[in-house]
């Protein structure tokens, strides 16, 4: 088996053994179902004025801007800082540092994509069951929105991995990531010019793909995402390659 693939499986297995991963996957399935039941059958009659798609994208926003970044911080801290603390990060195995680094980052990426797809599936099924206004024609656009949301998430993952290699304590690493993320979310209110320089800005870029698509804006965003991913990946790998057991 290809070494990167084999070790990605190992890293996914490690993350799946954690309660937080199971909880996130469970939330991705249960939150859309509960929301639909609440909106359509209980007291939230005012919400019924909202089109189904708006509720679906609000659910996507909840995961993309809050739950998934929080999970990324926990997972990257566990796979890098935590393993460094426990002495499991570097072992005598036939895998190069680059392969090890890529497979750990891939594992986080694959799990976040799985969460997004599980959420999308849950949203679609619960919409089909509970929403009177549900239309099958909206399924493709909805899937597209969930999938494109994954790309800025990968950039946030590379950013979190880079930070987890700089900081040697798990507690400090995760708190720093949360504080930095909150700063990234709120600083544009104080300094509007920084808005497009922050990777957190692009978490809801799926909105750009709905309705009239501005290709200029899309190209600019893709260029930003690729270059920031390359920057975070390179710094992260440089730090990882210098680590000694």
């Amino acid at each position: 088996m290809n070494t990167i693939l084999a070790n990605s499986l190992n890293e996914i297995q490690k993350l799946l053994a954690k309660k937080v991963t199971k909880l996130l996957l469970f939330s991705a399935v249960i939150i859309p179902v509960l929301t639909k039941i609440l909106v359509n059958n209980l007291f939230l009659t005012d919400w019924m004025a909202l089109p189904t798609e708006n509720i679906n994208f609000t659910l996507l926003d909840l995961f993309v801007t809050m739950l998934i970044p929080l999970y990324i911080f926990i997972a990257s801290t566990d796979l890098f800082t935590g393993e460094g603390e426990r002495g499991t990060l570097l072992q005598v195995r036939p895998i190069s540092r680059l392969e090890l680094f890529v497979s750990k980052l891939s594992a986080i990426g694959i799990l976040t994509l799985t969460v997004l797809l599980a959420e999308w599936l849950s949203v679609i099924i619960s919409s089909a069951i509970f929403d009177n206004t549900f239309e099958f024609s909206s399924v493709t656009a909805s899937l597209g929105a969930f999938i494109v949301s994954w790309f800025p998430i990968i950039v946030i993952s590379a950013f979190a991995v880079m930070l987890s290699l700089v900081i040697r304590s798990s507690v400090l690493a995760i708190s720093t990531m949360i504080v930095l993320y909150l700063i990234m979310m709120f600083i544009p209110y104080l300094l509007p010019s920084t808005l497009y320089l922050l990777p957190s800005t692009y978490l809801d870029w799926y909105m750009q793909w709905l309705g009239d698509v501005s290709f200029r804006w899309i190209i600019q965003t893709v260029t930003y995402l690729c270059s920031s991913f390359t920057l975070f990946f390179s710094i992260g790998y440089y730090m990882f390659n210098r680590k000694e057991a």
Binding site: K14, A17, K18, R86, G87, T88, Q91, V92, A245
Partner: peptide, 12 residues
């Protein structure tokens, strides 16, 4: 190799 304390993922 076994170098230093045994290395394992303890929740497995």
């Amino acid at each position: 190799a076994l170098i230093g304390p045994a290395v394992a993922y303890e929740n497995m």
